[in-house]
């Protein structure tokens, strides 16, 4: 298994939208490699003939009646919003400086 470099850990954290500090990278990167090394043992254990399982109890086409039921009021839905405006969630700008 390829060892994860510090830059790769930073890249993965970026993908996961976590702003790791340098100190955190120093702390976490070696631990991540220990974990990856231990799970790498499963590579090649199961051949092409084994079907993957995503759910322990397979179910297909789970339907229910499409009935209108009361939902949350706007006030309830927005009660925990960090910021709100005009019955809507208010978010920071979504475009970068260059866009």
């Amino acid at each position: 298994m390829p060892e994860l470099s510090r830059d790769e850990v930073r890249h993965l954290a970026d993908l996961a939208r976590i702003d790791l500090s340098d100190a955190e990278l120093d702390h976490l990167a070696p631990q991540l490699n220990v974990i990856l090394e231990s799970v790498a043992s499963i590579q090649g254990v199961a051949g092409d003939d084994v079907v993957p399982t995503s759910h322990p109890i397979p179910m297909t086409n789970v339907f229910r009646e499409d009935v209108v039921v009361p939902g949350l009021t706007p006030a309830e839905a927005l009660a925990a919003a960090p910021e709100q405006e005009d019955d809507k969630f208010s978010v920071p700008r979504i475009l970068g400086d260059e866009q």
């Binding site: 799970v39 499963i42 590579q43 254990v45 199961a46 084994v50 079907v51 993957p52 399982t53 322990p56």
Partner: peptide, 9 residues
């Protein structure tokens, strides 16, 4: 993918 196959086994 491998992990899901192990799950089957």
């Amino acid at each position: 993918g491998q992990a899901q196959k192990i799950r089957t086994l």
